[in-house]
Computed example of a mutant assay.
Amino acid sequence: MAILNSVLRAITWWNGQTYGTQLFTARHGEKVGEDVQGNVYYHNADDSRRWVIYNGEIEGSRVPPDWSGWLQRTVQAPPAEKPLIHRAWEKPHQENLTASPALAYRPAGSMRQKAPLERSDYEAWTPE
Rank of each mutant, 00 (worst) to 15 (best):
T98F: 02
R112Q: 12
P78H: 04
Y41A: 00
Q37N: 12
Y19E: 06
R119G: 01
I85C: 07
I58V: 15
F24K: 14
R27F: 11
E59V: 12
E118T: 09
R27C: 11
L23A: 14
V40M: 03
V40N: 01
T25P: 03
A104W: 07
Y41P: 01
P65Y: 03
T21H: 05
R73G: 02
V40L: 03
P116S: 02
R9W: 07
Y122A: 14
D46G: 11
P79C: 01
E118V: 12
P116A: 03
P78N: 03
A108Y: 08
S110E: 01
G56I: 07
I3W: 10
T12S: 11
Q94C: 04
S6Q: 13
V36G: 06
L71C: 01
A45I: 15
V36K: 11
D66E: 13
A99Q: 04
R50C: 06
Q113F: 02
T126N: 13
L97A: 05
W13A: 13
Y19L: 09
L4D: 04
Y42I: 01
D121L: 05
A102L: 09
L117K: 03
E128D: 13
H86E: 06
G69R: 10
L71Q: 01
L8H: 07
A2H: 12
A104M: 13
M111S: 14
S68K: 13
S6N: 14
W13V: 12
V75S: 07
E128W: 08
A45W: 13
A124N: 08
A26G: 03
T18H: 05
T12C: 12
P79N: 01
